[in-house]
């Protein structure tokens, strides 16, 4: 797997360069920036650290001296908190209050990481690396499975997953394996893949059209295609803004649904 030669980005079609169609290689061309102990930090890892600092820093700053009548940043932070609280109350109910801090951090961490995909200085969403959504989905998985086992008992937990009530008996032969696989194996997989694939595809799309806009910007008829690509990439940036917020929301919403399943044990 060869990275895109950086010299290729310096010339365009008038210099006789071919258009390098962006492949998934573009995600792996970053050098190690610094090293702490034996952890090597490259750009995506640095962005994750920045996201942690930004999210934690903002909310600690906003709630440093909480007042009953909120002003300034506290107002904004409470708006954000209410948004997640309303979602939790609608999906989990009263029992979900314990999980608001978890879902709240999850939403804003994912959103800030997604947003780095279109922020001019970073231009790379760390969530487009499969390891990041997998790690997040694993945390969620390790939250709701033990939670369900504690709340419903180990047997009750599996019974609720395997035998949805109110069906004719022979149907369980077909349904039990499907339910077991879809709940315990496919669920965490789709949970992580959904976020990863959206961010990955979105970033690749932006890179493709930016590359086209740059490589075809010459004094020929290609300039029309270049202008069209530039228009498309501008529109796509707006679409990405929407998708990033939506995916962060869906990731948190599904977490809330899984936790609510584990708490109540019904489908």
């Amino acid at each position: 797997m060869t990275a895109l030669p950086s010299s290729a980005w310096g010339c365009n079609i008038s210099d006789g360069c071919e258009i390098p169609a962006p492949k998934s290689d573009i995600f792996f061309e970053y050098e190690t920036l610094f090293e702490i102990w034996f952890f090597k930090f490259d750009k995506p890892m640095l962005l994750i650290l920045i996201a942690v600092v930004l999210v934690a820093g903002f909310f600690i700053f906003a709630f440093r001296k909480p007042t009953i009548v909120p002003r300034g940043t506290q107002n904004l932070a409470e708006l954000a908190y209410n948004f997640i609280r309303d979602m939790v109350q609608e999906n989990i109910g009263k029992a979900g209050e314990r999980f608001i801090p978890f879902l709240f951090s999850l939403f804003f961490f994912v959103w800030v990481m997604n947003f780095m995909g279109i922020f001019p200085l970073t231009m790379l969403p760390p969530t487009a690396y499969f390891a990041v959504p997998v790690a997040l989905a694993l945390i969620v998985y390790l939250t709701w499975v033990p939670l369900g086992m504690i709340r419903q008992g180990p047997w009750g937990f599996f019974k609720n997953i395997m035998f949805p009530p109110g069906l004719p008996k022979p149907l369980y032969i077909l349904l039990t394996p499907i339910e077991l696989i879809s709940n315990l194996l496919v669920r965490p997989f789709t949970h992580s893949v959904r976020l990863f694939a959206n961010m990955f595809a979105g970033h690749l799309l932006l890179v493709t059209f930016s590359a086209l806009a740059w490589f075809l910007a010459t004094a020929s008829l290609w300039i029309l295609t270049s202008a069209l690509s530039f228009t498309v990439v501008t529109a796509l940036t707006g679409l990405e803004l929407l998708i990033q917020a939506l995916q962060a929301y869906i990731f948190t919403l599904l977490t809330a649904v899984y936790i609510s399943d584990a708490l109540s044990g019904e489908h």
């Binding site: 893949v193 990863f196 694939a197 599904l254």
Partner: peptide, 24 residues
């Protein structure tokens, strides 16, 4: 509206997963 939108997005996420598995 609130309840409908939420369930709409949930169904959307579940259907979309299939397309994304195809993408991966």
């Amino acid at each position: 509206y609130g309840v409908i939108r939420q369930n709409m997005l949930l169904g959307f996420a579940l259907a979309e997963a299939l397309a994304l598995i195809g993408f991966v």
